[in-house]
């Protein structure tokens, strides 16, 4: 179904189809290719918060820049809201917050938002109303006419977020939005993103802060080496058996406990101590056998799901080893 502003008004917010992008660096007069993203395919439905996780250099920012049109893919297709991001009409419906956004310091917050608003196609009374609302929402109404060079890091981030939302985008891409913010700033940013999801805006979020991603995101993609190596709903990923962890409560001799470093002492009585240690599902039989051999008594075995951090790190490590992953959820 074609939308009146161009592009298909279907359910996909954005998608990458077999997209690759390589950078070329010059070192000692030699051109060295560096893979940004490699053969990435991804389709994210509308109305959710999608998180991209990965270590530094995994390709998250490259993927995001491809989605907002700052980079062109070497191969593959990038579509946002059913249309090409090269189309200015499509770009008018998205917003972007880069990591460490820099804003012209000689301008005031109000002046800068007016400029961005005009460049997004807003004008006149409508523009002024939007700017006033954006400043009020960001808590900057009283300081809207001060130069940005007087603003703190948190305030600048709020202005940067205000320019993303000024024109009412349908999809926004935010790169490390919590970076450099204090706890209050992080809480405000989280509240903003959650409110956007409620209002139907699709959010694509790059972040290192896995705890925040776990709280906010509906689906995540894990990137490593320029590829998406795992993708899915947060709950689904956590429920995968291989990421389950077991906590073993055991009674062991103090001397034995001290020799076995994984054992944490939880309490002591006489020559015995209560300790605990962790093991994955694969490690469990071996660990139990080892403890029994040392004379430990197994008091309790408690299963828990792995944290998202553990899922991500294990996925990245596995991708680095070239190992296989759970069927149906892993990308190569």
């Amino acid at each position: 179904m074609a939308g009146k502003l161009g592009g298909d008004m279907g359910e996909t917010a954005f998608e990458l189809e077999k997209v690759s992008k390589t950078y070329h660096l010059w070192r000692r007069l030699r051109r060295i290719p560096v893979a940004g993203v490699r053969d990435v395919s991804l389709a994210v439905p509308r109305g959710m918060i999608f998180g991209l996780l990965g270590l530094n250099g995994a390709g998250k920012t490259t993927a995001m820049k491809l989605l907002v049109g700052l980079l062109r893919p070497d191969s593959g297709t990038v579509r946002v809201l059913g249309g090409s991001v090269e189309d200015p009409r499509i770009r008018g419906r998205l917003g972007y917050l880069p990591e460490m956004p820099y804003l012209p310091q000689m301008m005031t917050a109000r002046g800068l938002l007016r400029h961005y608003g005009r460049m997004s196609g807003l004008a006149g009374r409508h523009l002024e109303t939007r700017v006033d609302n954006a400043l009020a929402t960001s808590g900057l109404a009283a300081r809207g006419d001060e130069p940005l060079r007087h603003f703190s890091k948190g305030m600048l981030q709020r202005v940067a977020m205000a320019q993303v939302l000024l024109h009412g985008p349908e999809v926004i891409f935010v790169d490390e939005p919590m970076s450099g913010l204090d706890p209050r700033g992080i809480a405000e940013m989280r509240a903003t993103l959650e409110a956007l999801r409620v209002s139907g805006v699709t959010v694509c979020l790059n972040s290192h802060q896995i705890a925040e991603v776990e709280r906010l995101c509906d689906r995540i993609g894990v990137m490593a080496g320029g590829r998406i190596v795992r993708e899915g709903a947060v709950g689904e990923l956590l429920a995968l058996a291989r990421f389950r962890r077991y906590r073993i409560i055991l009674l062991s001799r103090r001397s034995a406990a001290r020799r076995v470093s994984p054992v944490r002492e939880a309490g002591k009585t006489g020559g015995w101590c209560i300790g605990e240690r962790e093991a994955t599902e694969a490690e469990l039989p071996r660990v139990l056998a080892a403890e029994r051999k040392k004379g430990s008594r197994i008091l309790q075995i408690l299963a828990r799901e792995g944290s998202l951090e553990e899922v991500v790190l294990e996925t990245i490590a596995s991708a680095g080893r070239g190992g296989s992953a759970a069927p149906g959820r892993t990308r190569r």
């Binding site: 907002v68 049109g69 700052l70 200015p88 009409r89 770009r91 008018g92 998205l94 917003g95 972007y96 880069p98 956004p101 820099y102 804003l103 012209p104 961005y116 460049m119 997004s120 196609g121 320019q163």
Partner: peptide, 13 residues
């Protein structure tokens, strides 16, 4: 300082 990014992501050719 990359302010060009915030302009080019808008409907600007």
């Amino acid at each position: 300082q990359r302010t060009v990014w915030l302009v080019l992501v808008r409907p600007v050719t």
